[in-house]
Design a binder for these strands. Sequence first.
DNA 1: ATCGGTACCTGCACGC
DNA 2: TGCGTGCAGGTACCGA
Length: 264
Amino acid sequence: MPELPEVETIARALAPRLRGRRIVSAEFRCLRVLIGDPDRTSAALAGRRVLAVQRHGKFIEIQLDAGQSFVVHLGMTGKLLMNGAPGKHTHAVLTLDRGALLYDDSRQFGRLELSAGLPARVRKLGPEPLEVAFEDFESRVRAHKTKIKALLLNQRFLRGIGNIYADEALYRAGIHPLAVARRLHRDRLKKLHAAIRKVLGEAIDAGGSSVSDYVDVDGRQGSFQVRHNVYQKNGAPCPRCGARIRRILVTQRGTHFCPQCQKR
DNA sequence: ATCGGTACCTGCACGC
DNA sequence: TGCGTGCAGGTACCGA
């Protein structure tokens, strides 16, 4: 489900409401989404205090005292809800000294993990796309020989970009999703670097994109979906040139682009 | 070592 | 109404 802007929106809303709270108890109802033993995890969480909430790519780190971190990845349909009503797909309930945090995930692709510091799968992520300098961005692109769309989805290249923002950034940069990454000229990579920053920044300002079921911690939708130019707009006219937006598959992911504006 | 295909799960929209 | 198909903001794992 959520990409960097959605996860950032969630982390920003969560931080002031979790910071300083104490976890009274933790209950796990679905073993698939929990990495680790449920009883040991519950026991270790009980009594911990929340120090901070941070985003790392698409991961949310709830930093606890005693050097522990409760790390959440929302997968496709994961939701973190403050004081929501538990439902059919509520897989975890953290009861706090004030209120409760629920983890809801119909497809069960998300993962929850209590770890000492950050787990390896977070540590091996590439840099934040909003922080990476152009020189670093360019040398990372040159290190791969795959198609640019596939590279943007690779979390070891950059952390946090997913299917929506990959398509939207490539559209804004005028780059065809099947272009071979390392063969792109410097000026086109500069456009892409800027487009990524711009689209992610605008999406964060809009509270993310609610395409089907994304909501923030209070159950509110984002609004960036109304500004998508290509994502899930196949057959619609390109806002720039009027040509029909096309949908193709790139490494099994639906990929949307303007065949006129985006060249290899 | 890197790449691409597949598996994992549920729900929804669609055509018949 | 019901069934089959295809599709969906994700990553992990496997073999080439």
